[in-house]
């Protein structure tokens, strides 16, 4: 069975580069021991953006309609929300 759900290589190459850049930024935040709620939530948002990119472009879910379009996004939202709430509650 053949279906084309992924995106073009050029788009995926850009996604890969953006994810590498976001990862490096996250690492530098950790390397220089930058803490605080705002920074932690920013790092979390970076991770959620990367996760959404993997779902949309690498897994090809952006081209899927109906039920299967949403589980990965929902998964990112629920644990992401829990993690964000837990960090926010302790400031």
């Amino acid at each position: 069975m053949t279906r084309r759900t992924a995106f073009g290589i050029r788009a995926c190459t850009w996604v890969w580069l953006i994810m590498m850049g976001l990862t490096l930024t996250t690492y530098l935040i950790g390397r220089f021991a930058i803490g605080g709620l705002g920074v932690s939530l920013t790092v979390l948002v970076f991770a959620l953006i990367k996760g959404q990119m993997v779902g949309d472009y690498f897994m090809g879910l952006k081209r899927v309609r109906g039920f299967w379009r949403w589980p990965v996004s929902l998964w990112l939202f629920l644990p992401g929300g829990l993690i964000g709430a837990a960090f926010a509650l302790v400031g």
Binding site: T2, R4, F7, M59, V64
Partner: peptide
């Protein structure tokens, strides 16, 4: 299942015009 005949636009060129699928890859 959605099949694509050989000789049509390659998968990389066709990305912007392909239809959505109901199921993931």
């Amino acid at each position: 299942a959605v099949s694509y005949p050989i000789g049509t636009a390659g998968p990389l060129q066709a990305q912007s015009t392909i239809e959505s699928n109901r199921f993931p890859p």
